[in-house]
């Protein structure tokens, strides 16, 4: 089995850019949640953990921005921080993403134009609704397009995959990235998650699902780690942040307590696990994160310089 180490980390959250910003607000016990001017359906939540980022400097072409979902924007910024100047066309990529809100508002105009006598008229949808259906909607909402945009921006053509599954998806992606390297399927991989729950539809769905509410605000963020073999990291003279010594996912396991993180930056859906993992990398430890239906991803690691 190939030994796998972490040689890069990048994160963006309501705390700011980089994982140090998360650590700072955590240790200072400071919240980054803010009420917005919009009452957002008067949901029973304490505020929103909104990121302030500019994705344009990270893009190959400025016009690419119009194709990006919010999660894709956050993912590209976090990936840029994790990769730095590194470009490796054979690098693998695994991304955990959350759910698309049950109504993002993109098709609302088309549906409303298709109303007749208080009910939906499918015939009208095909005629009047067609022009009102935004052509870019499918390109912003397919789950794998966060991955696709990151791959395109950074030229990554190796093995790739998208995991969906709420809070566990991001960490499950790092688990999958660990396997890709440890099994020799790729030399290096960028793995993590990105999600945004700060739109009205996601916030309302999250409350309905019991994932958001008092003490658990909607947030957004992204975090990625670069994983590679210990041998390649040493050969390239890279700084080793930690060695992954175990990983897995299963249907039942204990739920870790991420309350401290969520209280500061909000619940970031599929990005929560990677953010917590990235923040904790400098300490030896073990992290478990559960998703709603009990699927769990876990990682164990040893921090710092690797002892051979």
């Amino acid at each position: 089995m190939i030994r796998v180490v972490v040689t890069g980390v990048g994160a963006v959250s309501a705390a700011g850019l980089g994982i140090e910003s998360v650590r700072t607000v955590l240790y200072e016990g400071r919240t980054c949640l803010a009420a917005t001017g919009d009452v957002r359906d008067r949901l029973p939540i304490p505020g929103y953990g909104v990121c302030t980022v500019d994705v344009v400097p990270c893009l190959r072409r400025k016009k690419d921005r119009k194709l990006l979902s919010r999660a894709a924007e956050l993912a590209i910024v976090a990936a840029s921080l994790a990769l730095g100047d590194r470009r490796d066309s054979e690098m693998g990529l695994v991304v955990g993403v959350g759910r698309e809100p049950s109504d993002s508002g993109e098709v609302e105009a088309a549906l409303l134009a298709s109303e007749r006598n208080g009910a939906l008229d499918v015939g009208l949808l095909g005629s009047a609704g067609l022009a009102l259906y935004p052509p870019l909607t499918p390109l912003r909402t397919l789950p794998n397009l966060v991955l696709a945009h990151v791959a395109i921006q950074f030229g990554m053509t190796g093995e790739s995959g998208t995991r969906t599954g709420e809070e566990a998806a991001g960490l499950a992606s790092i688990v999958e990235g660990y396997r890709l390297v440890s099994e020799g399927r790729v030399g290096a991989v960028l793995a993590g998650g990105a999600d945004s729950l700060v739109d009205a539809g996601s916030a309302r769905d999250g409350v309905r699902l019991g994932r958001l509410g008092p003490g658990r605000a909607p947030g957004e963020g992204a975090a990625f780690v670069v994983l590679e073999s210990l041998e390649s990291a040493r050969r390239a003279g890279r700084v080793v942040l930690a060695e992954i010594v175990g990983a897995g996912d299963q249907a039942t396991a204990a739920v870790s307590d991420l309350t401290h993180l969520v209280a500061c930056i909000g619940s970031c859906g599929a990005a929560t696990g990677p953010l917590a993992f990235a923040e904790a990398l400098s300490r030896d430890g073990r992290l478990q994160v559960a998703e709603a239906d009990g699927a769990v991803a876990w990682l164990a690691w040893t921090a710092g310089e690797v002892v051979l």
């Binding site: 397919l142 995991r163 996912d249």
Partner: peptide, 18 residues
Amino acid sequence: GAKGPVVTLSIACTSSAQ
């Protein structure tokens, strides 16, 4: 009643192949 990994892959038209 499976208690092993329960994994969902969403990669458009390659989803179930993956």
